[in-house]
Structure formats: structure tokens, C-alpha cells
């Protein structure tokens, strides 16, 4: 048996969570992954004690309604396994909407992950260039005030936005944004939607499309804006 040295205890997986799996909460994702890695027959390390569990750590939990091409989890192994081998086994045990796209023994910690980029697509009932312009002005404003979820406190999320700009693509407004992913100041991209919706008069359609927006997480970055890995 190959001994696992300190730095190679955890194997990191980067995975996608697309399509209808955006409706799976973080808690359910953890539960699902637990079963996935067990049936993938990986050399898992288990916690000691009465109720042993494998050790899984996730970076920047995703909220319901957001798709992602950039999720990370670290899993502790009991012995060395080739990353490609582990990735292949896991992928055979998941559906196409959730697949590992990279596996490696990491050098970094999840606390080093500072920024994440998102693509937010809003589809209002009627669109004109005026609306796109207004969205951009709102995103560039000196203060970006939103009401915090589950409280009535107003906060300025400006410092948590690295960049954000809106363009028109067909009948939609596409916002590309890089937002804070630091655990202490994580910014949920839903706030951007909420902000544009309330201040920009977008998506006021009472019909089926009233909730029509999509959010996709694209990339993760270190503090110096190099890509996180």
C-alpha cells in the first residue's frame, strides 16, 4: 500500500452542476456525493468514533437556482489513487448534469479562494437598449444597496463586486460579474438579480416568465485574480 503523505491526503475534484440539478440544495448535494463516492469504491478515509463518515469539504456552497461549471470538493483518501482513476470512477456513478471535470492533489486551501465569476441572464418581457444602458449604470453606481435576506437591513454590496457589466444578447440582458467568494463576505449572485429587478424595473411581468432568469457560476480566482486551483 502506498502511504499517503501529508500534502496528498485530500484529493480535489472540480465538477459541474448543471440543468435541473440547480434545484438541489447544498445539503442534498453533500448527501448525494456521499453515496456517489461510496459506490465509486474509492479508498476513502473515515472519521473515528461511533458513526464513521468519509471526510468531504466543499468550497463556496451554491444556492438553489444557480448552475455551475466550477464547483470544488476535497475528499480525504486513505491511500494514494491516481486522480484520473478516481475521476473516472466517480463520473461513471453520476448523471450527465453532474460530472467531475478535473481531479488533482491540491496545493491550495479553500480559504484562498476569493472571487468567483458568474453569468446572469435576465429575460424581461420587453427589451430595449435603454434597459441595458440603465442596468449598466446601476451596476457601475458608487453604492449598490440591497436589502439583506431574512432581515430588513440595507447593505452596500459595492465592495463585494469586483466587476459587473451588462450586454444585450438577443432578447436577454447578460450580466457578467465577478463577486466576492471569501467565506467571510460571500456575495450571493441572487442579490444582483434582486437589485436590477427592484431598481431597474426588470422582470415585472406577472406571467410565467416573471421569475425568468438564469445564473451560471463560471470560474474561481485567488486574491491576485489568477485562476483558483
Amino acid at each position: 500500500m502506498v502511504q499517503v503523505n501529508e500534502t496528498k491526503r485530500f484529493l480535489r475534484f472540480k465538477f459541474i452542476k448543471r440543468g435541473s440539478l440547480q434545484y438541489i440544495s447544498h445539503l442534498d448535494l453533500v448527501r448525494t456525493m456521499h453515496k456517489v463516492i461510496v459506490r465509486s469504491k474509492l479508498p476513502l478515509w473515515y472519521t473515528e468514533g461511533f458513526n464513521p463518515k468519509p471526510k468531504m469539504i466543499f468550497a463556496a456552497p451554491l444556492s438553489i437556482g444557480t448552475e455551475s461549471e466550477c464547483e470544488f470538493m476535497d475528499i480525504r483518501m486513505s491511500e494514494y489513487i491516481e486522480p484520473e482513476e478516481a475521476m473516472a470512477r466517480i463520473n461513471a456513478n453520476m448523471t450527465s448534469e453532474m460530472q467531475i471535470i478535473e481531479a488533482y492533489y491540491p496545493e491550495s486551501k479553500f480559504t484562498d479562494l476569493k472571487w468567483m465569476s458568474y453569468r446572469i441572464t435576465l429575460t424581461p418581457v420587453e427589451i430595449d437598449d435603454e434597459l441595458v444602458l440603465r442596468s449598466n449604470q446601476l451596476l457601475l453606481a458608487d453604492t449598490v444597496e440591497v436589502v439583506k435576506k431574512n432581515s430588513d437591513k440595507t447593505i452596500d454590496i459595492r465592495p463585494l463586486i469586483k466587476s459587473a457589466n451588462a450586454t444585450r444578447v438577443g432578447n436577454s440582458i447578460v450580466v457578467d460579474a465577478i463577486l466576492s467568494a471569501d467565506p467571510s463576505s460571500f456575495l450571493n449572485p441572487e442579490y444582483i438579480v434582486k437589485y436590477l429587478k427592484e431598481k431597474g424595473g426588470l422582470l415585472s411581468d406577472p406571467d410565467l416568465t416573471s421569475e425568468h432568469y438564469e445564473i451560471l457560476r463560471l470560474k474561481a480566482y485567488f486574491a491576485d485574480m489568477t485562476e483558483f486551483r
Binding site: 440539478l21 434545484y23 440544495s25 453520476m94 421569475e211
Partner: peptide, 16 residues
């Protein structure tokens, strides 16, 4: 309508 109901995960299917 999945974005506007409770527990949308009930309706998505696609299970392993």
C-alpha cells in the same frame, strides 16, 4: 415554474 415553488428538487427527476 420550478423557481417559484417550494422544494423544486421533488420535480426534477434525472436520478442515478
Amino acid at each position: 415554474v420550478l423557481k417559484s415553488v417550494s422544494k423544486p428538487g421533488r420535480y426534477i427527476g434525472g436520478e442515478f
